[in-house]
Design a protein around this nucleic acid. Structure first.
Length: 912
RNA sequence: GGGCGCAUAGCUCAGUGGUAGAGCGUUGCAUUCACAUUGCAAAGGUCGAAGGUUCGAUACCUUCUGCGCCCACCA
């Protein structure tokens, strides 16, 4: 490597790109990475070491993405919102922190690694648990940084020094602590329950991890003979093989057809068993024959009937999806599909099938992760009792101690918690938090571990292997092989990230958090569980049972004050963005193409209140990119102007007042989480008012002050920074205070505007607009700059140079100084006129047609107004009538001026 | 089956009991100008349908239609 190359590499940090006379347009790829690094170097994302006195804290915990995940548009939107809030509050001077991190995502991650193994022809069982977990950690190390890198690309100002992972040592401790606490409190139990079993994952999965799909199937009618030979009952099923596990036939209690049969017994075909006919309300008497076979072991509803009717439970399908020993030699070991064929064949032989099977479209339950058909079955699982936990979580929402945005989500939250069933928390996976449950192999237990508690059946709850059994002194323990549901650990996220169960400084300082921003699909799965976990575990950070659910107490324990449920990002056709469907867009591709500022801005500007879906339009990102470029060019232009302190002009005062208003509106919008409004307002103000009017006027000498232009621009950069952090930070090098970076600059305070100048400027703008229209209408070539005669209601003489410049006339005059003037159609001006000389060179004939059609429209409007006034009579409020009358007068005047203009032109044409 | 949301310009969406708005797209004009990732101008809408309330409804109420989402045990 030559010395020269080395030297060039050392040239950095550099002055701003503007000063280096950068090529246009603005190129985000030259700035974004450098700026992000500069922020990190400056530790700009970290709060002060100690909490500053008298400062409010503002904290957000990121919804932890799956460790194997990569950024999708939903994440990008999620991050853009959170970062906007974080940057805003940081600038406001709040004690601000944004905690990043990742979720180990039990099933999802395990599946990914299992798929890899499959390619090598291996299963996890070939490796064994330890090796397999090692392998998952390896994969985590490999892919786990992807999403955090991507979050950095977006510009997320997370405090990476506080990054957390749900499988970190400290976090594991929190999870164990929580489980053991529930156990001590008697909220944990183990039982045989019907669960959704995924034969492929070989694990139980929660209701929320099950998806439903409509499929075609066959429904068979089976004939069940009565024991006493007095007849038979016909039952329908889509899964004939489960009949081997039937332990009853159920009918609706008041169903006349079967009244006499209730209490009688059925001789269950293909088995030696006799099963009762029971009456249960769960039966729909209008469906099929009104009699239903009951298989408590393999159907959710049947399980519930079984509970009520005290029925026997016979497991006929095993965890491997094959028939169990319980069915007899003929079927044992058969996959359900084969067992079905065999059962049908047998029944056919016995003439116990009634008619041909019918086609039916029905819902099939599938595993959300691997789309395998769910097999409901009974197995031993650990449960958390939900009743006592849900109650306070319901109360805090009912008392509005949590603010949902949009509000209607409160109902969804409450509905879910109100109907919640006990939570099956055990999963038969290897990747996750292994249950802190130990089974004493000898029978006695000791209590030398503080956290060890005795339960029935020689079970010890402990984070470490117990040393001795309390009762029998046994030292032989086996840990339960199951792991906890991933959501069990995510539920602790808002406080576990701060070091709970230790009473850390961070926990005291940042908990409860300020805002939780998430997509709506994990409302039930996650938000509700964080709330009840928070209420349970953060009572003065001792996580003891909160005895009183008083308002004061609870509000300190709710993990967040605001829940923002943001829209799902869809594509333009309204389809879900999905990699597998090929309907997804990679945000990183967009960032590469347009820059992070553009992507953030483009996403946020498309959001609005109460929206449930966002149809992502790449055009919005282009708007963002163009806007960044516009800022860049404004910067170049204003930066080159000479500094000259002058007394504020009319235009100065106007733009300053508008700025105050916009500052206030943007601030309020941010406080109310209206990101779309905030970005739209800034875009409109900076582009349509500041650039198109103020800066254009500034090209006329003496009408504006350079220092005001700079001040306004500077404030614009501050206001825009939460949304477009990079380009604003880059420009700050030229416009900001020499001392610090924009990220640390104070959010502007605003004063009420007086609005006097605003009316004046509006009038000015209307006149310029009218003149520009006339230019276009008459087809005056751009190169031609005629003199124009103008008479206006207000005295605008000082602004004439500006009017001339902006509407592209050489000069504005007010008196008919000898030349021959022809009046033109006008609305805002009392009189607009051009010389015959100018007009005679123009294609007036064609233009007249357009003008005449315009007058027709005006006439129609007048008629409409007149009719409306008649209709109103004296029934409408006086002020409204008055307003309409004034409107009518104005319209009539406009029409008259237009008609005069047309007549004048017409005369002119005839003369020429 | 229960619940929720949406329907306004070609597209994505604001909005209001009394002139229908933006961005993108389209059309025309403009390139020695900070910016063509630009500027100026313009065209474009029975505000999903039907009733009701009202002097007046795109807006408020009811029903319907279409689309989307969530929850649920239909064999």
């Amino acid at each position: 490597m030559s010395m020269a190359t080395k030297n060039t590499e050392k040239i950095s940090p550099s002055p701003s790109l503007i000063k280096r006379g950068s090529a246009r347009p603005y190129d985000p790829s030259l700035t974004e990475e450098k700026i992000y690094k500069a922020w990190e170097r400056a530790k700009a994302f970290q709060p002060a070491v100690k909490k500053p006195r008298g400062k409010k804290s503002f904290s957000i915990v990121i919804p932890p993405p799956n460790v194997t995940g990569s950024l999708h548009m939903g994440h990008a939107l999620n991050a853009s919102m959170q970062d906007a809030l974080i940057r805003y509050h940081r600038m406001k001077g709040d004690d601000t922190v944004w905690i990043p991190g990742m979720d180990h995502a039990g099933i999802a991650t395990q599946n990914v690694v299992e798929k890899q193994l499959k390619k090598e022809g291996l299963t996890r069982h070939d490796l064994g648990r330890e090796k397999f977990i090692e392998r998952v950690w390896q994969w985590k190390g490999q892919s786990g940084t992807t999403i955090s890198k991507q979050l950095r690309r977006v510009g997320s100002s997370c405090d990476w020094s506080r990054e957390r992972f749900t499988m970190d040592k400290e976090y594991v401790r929190a999870v164990q602590e929580a489980f053991i606490h529930y156990a001590k409190k008697g909220l944990i139990y183990r039982g045989d329950r019907i669960v959704n079993w995924c034969p492929r994952c070989a694990s139980s999965i929660s209701d929320l991890e099950v998806k439903h799909e409509e499929r075609d199937g066959l429904i068979y009618n089976l004939i069940y003979p009565l024991v006493d030979g007095s007849g038979s009952v016909v039952v329908a099923t889509t899964r004939p093989e489960t009949m081997l596990g039937d332990t009853a036939v159920a009918v609706y209690p008041s169903d006349g057809r079967y009244q006499e049969l209730v209490g009688k017994k059925i001789k269950l075909p293909l088995t030696n068993r006799e099963i009762p006919i029971v009456a249960d309300h769960a039966v729909d008497k209008t469906f099929g024959t009104g009699a239903v076979k009951v298989t408590p072991a393999h159907d959710q509803t049947d399980w519930e009937i079984g509970e009520r009717q005290k029925l026997q439970v016979i497991n006929v399908i095993g965890e491997d999806g094959k028939m169990t020993q319980a069915v007899g030699l003929e079927y044992v070991g058969l996959p359900t599909s084969e067992a079905r064929e065999k059962v049908l064949q047998k029944l056919q032989e016995l003439q116990l099938l009634k008619g041909e099977p019918e086609k039916i479209r029905h819902n099939v339950s599938l595993c959300d992760r691997c789309s395998t058909v769910i097999q409901p079955l009974v197995s031993k699982q650990w449960f958390v009792k939900m009743g006592p936990l849900a109650k306070p979580a319901i109360i805090v929402a009912e008392k509005d101690l949590i603010n949902f945005e949009p509000q209607r989500w409160k109902k969804v939250y409450l509905d879910w918690l109100t109907g919640v069933k006990d939570w099956c928390v055990s999963r038969q996976l290897w990747w996750g938090h292994q249950l802190p449950v130990w089974y004493c192999q000898t029978g006695r237990m000791t209590n030398d571990d503080k956290r060890m508690i005795k339960t029935n059946g020689h079970v010890v709850f402990s984070s470490v292997k117990p040393k001795k059994c309390l009762d029998c002194g046994g030292t032989d323990f086996i840990q339960d092989p199951d792991v906890l549901d991933t959501w069990f650990s995510s539920a602790l996220w808002p406080f576990a990230v701060f070091g709970w169960p230790e009473m850390t400084d961070d926990l005291a300082r940042f908990y409860p958090t300020s805002v939780l921003a998430t997509a709506r699909d994990i409302m039930a799965l996650w938000v509700t569980r964080m709330v009840f976990s928070g209420l349970e575990f953060t009572d003065k950070n001792k996580y003891l049972p909160a005895k009183q659910y008083g308002k004061k107490n609870l509000s300190q324990q709710i993990p967040f004050k605001n829940v923002i449920i943001h829209p799902t990002v869809l594509n333009l056709k309204g389809q879900r963005m999905s990699k597998s469907l090929g309907t997804g867009i990679d945000p990183i591709d967009l960032i590469n193409q347009y820059g992070a500022d553009a992507v953030r801005f483009g996403l946020l500007i498309q959001t609005q209140q109460d929206q449930q879906a966002l149809r992502f339009d790449e055009n919005a990102v282009r708007v963002g990119r163009n806007f960044a470029n516009k800022l860049w060019n404004i910067g170049k232009y204003i930066g080159s102007a000479k500094k000259a302190k002058t007394a504020p002009t009319l235009f100065d005062n106007w733009i300053l007042q508008r700025l105050e208003t916009v500052s206030e509106e943007v601030t309020v919008a941010l406080d109310e989480f209206r990101f779309g409004d905030a970005t739209r307002m800034l875009h409109a103000f900076i582009w349509d008012e500041f650039a198109d009017w103020y800066i254009e006027v500034s090209k006329v000498p003496g009408l504006t002050s350079a220092n005001v232009a700079k001040d306004v621009f500077k404030k614009c950069l501050v206001l825009l920074h939460p949304f477009m952090p990079f380009v604003t930070e880059e420009l700050w090098k030229d416009f900001g205070d020499k001392k610090g970076m924009l990220i640390n600059t104070a959010w502007p305070k605003f004063a009420k505007s007086r609005k006097k100048e605003i009316k004046e400027i509006k009038y000015f703008q209307a006149i310029v607009g009218e003149l520009r229209s006339i230019r276009n209408l008459l087809g005056i070539p751009n190169g031609t700059k005629p003199v124009i005669l103008l008479q206006t209601e207000r005295n605008l003489k000082p602004l004439w140079p500006a009017i001339a410049q902006l509407s592209n006339f050489s000069e504005v005059v007010e008196k008919e100084n000898g030349a021959k003037w022809v009046s033109l159609p006008a609305t805002y001006c009392s009189k607009i006129a051009l010389t015959t000389e100018t007009l005679s060179t123009l294609p007036l004939k064609e233009r007249l047609i357009t003008m005449e059609s315009d007058t027709k429209k005006a006439q129609e409007e007048i008629i409409k107004l007149e009719q409306r006034l008649i209709q109103m009579g004296d029934k409408a409020p006086v002020n409204v009538v008055q307003q309409q009358r004034e409107l009518l007068v104005a319209k009539k005047l406009d029409l008259e001026k237009q008609q005069n203009g047309i007549t004048a032109l017409d005369t002119l044409i005839k003369r020429i």
